[in-house]
Amino acid sequence: MKPPAASATVATRILGIDPGLRHTGFGVIDTLGSQLRYVASGVIKSGEGSLPERLKVILDGVREVIATYRPDQVAVEIVFVNVNPQSTLLLGQARGAAICGAVSHDLPVAEYTALQVKQAVVGHGKAAKAQVCHMVERLLALDASPSSDAADALACAICHAHGSSGVAAMVGVGTRKRGSRLSR
């Protein structure tokens, strides 16, 4: 007698992160095939204080989220260049702290631009924050709206989950769009 065949579909847990120096959003979803299921979301608040102290809060917060929800993969939004270079640098450091929290748990990290996230969730890259939040609510069948930072993190996780279709399939994970051309 043969043992029963193992299931071909296994749920994957994805942690999405929307990095910010004051508020780092996180969102956790499970995927099973094309189905998405909400697990948790929230915000890591670094408060006031010196930059090193705030970066440690982000690092420790991401580690705590990972220890609590045990994701298989992590998706992080890529920092865009602001008009103010100092703000961009600070945001990049917050993003680095979040990525370090993920890689310290040996998790694979995928990176997506805001344009890629909006394209995957809303259908066009110039969507407003309210549109992204609304689509996150609908795609995950949420009863209430998550905070803006948590919605952005959930959108990043959804973008990663949809990586096998749409823009992500055309260009691959972690690619960026420059001008009107997609490039690796």
Rank of each mutant, 00 (worst) to 15 (best):
V39P: 08
A40I: 05
A40W: 02
S41T: 05
G42S: 04
V43C: 14
I44R: 03
I44L: 15
S46C: 09
E48C: 06
G49N: 10
G49T: 10
G49W: 00
S50M: 10
P52Y: 12
P52S: 11
R54C: 11
L55D: 06
L55C: 11
L55E: 08
V57N: 13
V57H: 09
I58K: 01
I58L: 07
L59S: 05
L59Q: 11
L59R: 10
D60G: 05
D60V: 10
D60W: 06
G61I: 09
V62E: 02
E64F: 06
E64W: 03
E64N: 14
V65N: 02
I66N: 02
I66L: 04
I66A: 02
I66R: 06
A67K: 14
T68L: 06
Y69D: 06
P71L: 09
P71I: 04
D72W: 02
Q73M: 08
Q73G: 03
V74E: 09
A75G: 04
A75F: 02
V76F: 00
I78E: 12
V79Q: 03
F80N: 04
V81W: 09
V81A: 14
V81Y: 11
N82D: 15
N82I: 01
N82V: 00
N82G: 12
V83Q: 15
V83R: 15
N84R: 07
P85K: 06
P85D: 07
S87F: 13
S87L: 12
T88A: 14
T88F: 01
T88C: 07
L89R: 12
L90H: 07
L90C: 04
L91C: 10
Q93E: 15
Q93S: 07
A94H: 09
R95L: 06
R95E: 07
G96E: 08
G96S: 11
A97R: 02
A97L: 07
A98K: 03
A98W: 01
I99E: 08
I99T: 12
C100I: 08
G101Q: 05
G101R: 05
A102H: 04
S104E: 13
S104H: 12
S104A: 15
D106Y: 06
P108E: 13
V109Y: 03
A110D: 11
Y112C: 03
Y112E: 06
A114C: 04
L115S: 09
K118Q: 03
Q119K: 09
A120Y: 01
A120T: 01
A120L: 03
V121M: 00
K126I: 06
K126M: 13
A127H: 03
A128W: 07
A128I: 05
A130S: 14
A130H: 14
A130Y: 13
Q131S: 08
Q131M: 13
Q131A: 14
Q131H: 07
V132G: 01
C133Q: 15
C133T: 15
C133H: 12
C133Y: 06
E137D: 09
R138W: 09
L140Y: 00
A141Q: 14
L142I: 01
L142S: 01
